[in-house]
Simulated assay, not measured.
Amino acid sequence: MGAAKAIPDWPTTFGGIAPPSEPGAFVEYLHRVGAVVVGLLVLALAAIGLLWFRSRPWLLVPPLLALVLLAVVSAIGALVVLGSVSPVIAAVDLASALMVLALMVTAALAARFFLRNPDGTAHLAFRDSFSRLALGSGIALYVVLFSGLSVGIPAPGNCLGLPLWGGYPFTAGGEEWLRTAHLLLSGATSALVVSLVVTAWIKRRTERRELLLANGAGALFVTSLAAGELAAAGGFPWSLLAIRVCATVLLWAVFTALVVREGLKATR
């Protein structure tokens, strides 16, 4: 939302480490502090995996991959502050950050699986129509979320690419067909999410957690879209943009949890 350029240097903050007083710079400062905290936590998880869980790839590999992706995110973040990046690189940045979240959710669910099944062997298998629908919807959502940046959609707060139908998606510049493709993919993803919720009530009615995750994903999807449209209609106030971003991040986490839980069912 423009805060990245509020601090002109990296990794320091105006040559030091003290928090700045200017609101935009403070937002960027909080972002950097959060990134450091996340990085340390992932590093700790990777170290624990290497020390005690080498025989459990589901507990070892996700944090190691997340460390690599965090390095990519940090490097791109530095480029954003110190210079500029293309829409494609910005999309890679967002895709990497989303994958870090997915990997951490996967590791958490795998840890829960092994806690309940100490001698179990975990692998993902999507053997019925609902689990495959969840997987397909999750893949489509992932592509939609980061691809908005790569096609250069210029709406403020569109860093997570659920499109703003009222946020002037069709602008001059020769990339209209890419934006149209993104909108069509988003529409298809919306249909998949609706189908997922309906199917959950049919096939997962007695499975409380799966039904809750599917309904939560549907509610968060609607919240993200509604907040984006209201923000576009009202001049993009920070409050609605914040709701949009938070809802979208939670949506991705919930979708990841649903897909992983469905995949791990075959090993229970």
Results as ranks from 00 to 15, higher is better:
3 A>Y: 11
4 A>P: 02
6 A>Y: 05
8 P>F: 12
9 D>P: 04
13 T>M: 10
19 P>L: 03
20 P>G: 11
27 V>L: 03
27 V>W: 04
30 L>C: 14
32 R>S: 01
33 V>P: 03
33 V>A: 12
36 V>R: 13
37 V>R: 01
41 L>N: 03
42 V>P: 07
45 L>T: 05
45 L>W: 13
47 A>G: 10
49 G>S: 06
51 L>Y: 11
54 R>G: 15
57 P>Y: 14
57 P>H: 12
57 P>A: 10
60 L>Q: 07
67 L>M: 13
67 L>H: 01
69 L>S: 09
70 L>C: 11
71 A>P: 08
72 V>A: 09
74 S>K: 09
75 A>M: 05
76 I>D: 04
81 V>H: 02
81 V>T: 11
85 V>K: 07
88 V>L: 15
90 A>M: 13
97 A>F: 06
100 V>T: 03
101 L>W: 02
109 L>V: 13
117 N>Y: 02
118 P>K: 12
122 A>L: 15
122 A>E: 11
126 F>A: 08
128 D>H: 08
130 F>W: 15
130 F>C: 05
132 R>L: 14
133 L>E: 12
133 L>W: 04
135 L>P: 13
135 L>F: 15
135 L>E: 13
136 G>P: 07
138 G>A: 03
146 F>N: 03
149 L>D: 07
153 I>S: 14
154 P>V: 09
154 P>L: 04
158 N>G: 15
160 L>S: 05
161 G>H: 05
161 G>R: 11
164 L>F: 12
164 L>N: 10
166 G>Q: 10
166 G>T: 09
169 P>W: 00
172 A>S: 13
173 G>F: 06
175 E>R: 15
177 W>L: 14
180 T>W: 08
182 H>E: 00
189 T>S: 06
189 T>K: 03
190 S>D: 13
192 L>I: 05
192 L>S: 10
193 V>Y: 08
195 S>Y: 10
196 L>D: 08
196 L>H: 07
201 W>D: 13
202 I>F: 09
207 E>G: 02
207 E>W: 02
208 R>P: 14
212 L>G: 04
212 L>M: 07
217 A>D: 10
221 F>N: 03
221 F>A: 06
223 T>K: 00
227 A>H: 04
228 G>P: 06
230 L>A: 09
231 A>W: 01
234 G>I: 06
237 P>K: 00
237 P>V: 08
239 S>C: 08
239 S>E: 15
240 L>M: 10
241 L>D: 10
245 V>K: 08
245 V>R: 06
246 C>K: 08
247 A>R: 08
249 V>N: 01
250 L>P: 04
251 L>M: 05
256 T>H: 09
257 A>I: 07
258 L>Y: 03
263 G>W: 00
266 A>G: 04
268 R>C: 09
